[in-house]
């Protein structure tokens, strides 16, 4: 079996620009990932801070360190600023682009590109159609269950396209036109004062009885639980999934990457990986429910599946 590819997904949070820069530089120098996804995927208002001044430089460093760099587009495209950013990224001849909405597909059809998590690919016909228009690699939505991933992996193999699944980090559950970070502070999207910068891993929402539930990242709603598919990695590899995505958080992502690299290479067991993630203080609980066709927040034991 070919070696599994480990990827670092787009940084979905609004960290101070220097923190973002340092994050990616450290990934370049220290993280055993093969591919990184750059570019703002959540809110176009954030792009003047990091993307405009730093992204090209960071990209060079990552490429210099031997990483493949892909540019992810905005997940929700509505106003002129969003549309221009997507059009500009897609117009670059020398950049590999991951499309996260249909407006990016409008620009990218006919040339090679990737399909991101925010574009719904739930069946063989969709995958085949997009591949016929130039899609070479698909990252699936977190909510897909095993049966669906199995079918899509067979289709990807037949079409000769890459298949990627997120294995770590909070799951994107919803997008909206409204900014819920701004709303929590009594503001609107237009006068948000970039309050989302306060929460490096999202703003916690709990139920009235104080049960942690969701996390807000601007217009995006995330799971409270961190996705951890350590116990499913082996099954995914056997299905033919070739790329495994870590979604960046403020914890030690280099160490998380080493952990998953060793797990993918069968150098450590699932239990060892899980112990390691706990020692790294990855917030608990973790979840894998979607894969098992259970509520997404649940952690289903995979002991019986392991050999």
């Amino acid at each position: 079996m070919a070696s599994s590819e480990l990827t670092m997904g787009p940084l979905i949070f609004h960290w101070p620009a220097e923190q973002k820069r340092d994050f990616w530089l450290r990934i370049a120098d220290e993280a055993p990932v093969d591919t990184v996804y750059l570019g703002e995927t959540v809110c176009s208002k954030r792009t003047p801070f990091f993307d405009d001044p730093y992204l090209a430089k960071v990209s060079q460093r990552l490429q210099g360190a031997g990483k493949k760099v892909i540019w992810s587009t905005l997940s929700e495209v509505m106003i002129k600023r969003d549309r221009k950013i997507v059009a500009d990224i897609c117009a670059q001849e020398d950049m590999a682009v991951e499309a996260n909405d249909a407006s990016a597909l409008f620009h990218l059809s006919g040339k090679p590109h990737r399909i991101g998590q925010a574009l719904n690919v739930y069946n063989e016909a969709t995958m085949q159609f997009l591949a016929s228009k130039g899609a070479t690699h698909f990252c699936l939505a977190p909510e897909l269950p095993r049966s669906c991933i199995t079918s899509l992996a067979q289709t990807a193999k037949r079409l000769g396209v890459g298949l990627e699944v997120q294995v770590f980090g909070r799951m994107s559950l919803a997008l909206s036109a409204r900014c819920y970070h701004a709303r929590a502070y009594g503001r609107t999207k237009d006068n948000c004062l970039f309050v989302c910068e306060e929460d490096p891993d999202g703003m916690d929402l709990s139920t009235r009885s104080d049960t942690p539930f969701l996390a807000i990242n601007g217009i995006q709603t995330l799971s409270h639980a961190y996705l951890n598919l350590s116990g499913e990695v082996s099954a995914l590899q056997q299905m033919g999934v070739g790329a495994f995505r870590l979604s960046p958080h403020s914890g030690d992502m280099v160490a998380v990457a080493h952990c998953y690299r060793d797990l993918l290479d069968n150098k450590i067991t699932v239990d060892e990986a899980d112990v390691m993630l706990k020692e790294l203080k990855v917030p608990q609980p973790m979840a894998n429910g979607f894969f098992h066709h259970q509520p997404g927040y649940k952690m289903v034991s995979t002991l019986s599946e392991r050999t």
């Binding site: 969701l214 509520p295 997404g296």
Partner: peptide, 21 residues
């Protein structure tokens, strides 16, 4: 609906039944 339609997995996260699927 408050969420972008076709891109909401909140119900699936809580109940295991999916709005999209």
């Amino acid at each position: 609906g408050m969420m972008a339609e076709g891109r909401c997995s909140l119900t699936n996260y809580v109940t295991g039944q999916s709005t999209n699927m």
